[in-house]
């Protein structure tokens, strides 16, 4: 099967809307199709990765465990915008999984290299 470079661009916070969750389902399917999958977290998308979600009170499935599972699917390219973290008072230490923190310009360059950009 042809392998293409898919980047999932996540710019929305979790829970307030379903986009982040359904984006994750696309990531897993793309990985199952053995595509070259990466995830970019820009703007409010960085909130998806914040450690310590406790969603019992809102009765919605939490994200945190799923991030850990990405590695099992060989999805290891997680790029996070340095500016987005800084603007929101976060650092890489606040995130639930290891990521590569890059400037928006560098993430822009990576976007240019993709075959397919799926935005959520």
């Amino acid at each position: 099967m042809t392998t293409k470079k898919f980047m999932m661009v996540n710019r929305k916070a979790p829970y307030g809307t379903i986009y982040a969750w359904e984006a994750l389902e696309v990531v897993l399917i793309a990985a199952a199709f053995e595509q070259d999958v990466s995830l970019a977290f820009l703007d409010d998308g960085v909130f998806q990765l914040k450690k310590g979600h406790n969603t019992k009170g809102i009765e919605v499935k939490a994200f945190e465990k799923t991030w850990g599972a990405l590695e099992d699917y060989d999805v290891t390219k997680l790029y996070v915008s340095q500016e987005a973290l800084a603007e929101r008072g976060l650092t890489a230490d606040d995130l639930a999984v290891p990521v590569e923190v890059l400037s928006r310009a560098d993430i822009g360059k990576l976007m240019e290299e993709q075959d397919v950009l799926l935005s959520f």
Partner: peptide, 8 residues
Amino acid sequence: NKTCQSWL
């Protein structure tokens, strides 16, 4: 353009 990104 080779790719397009919708900034939703």
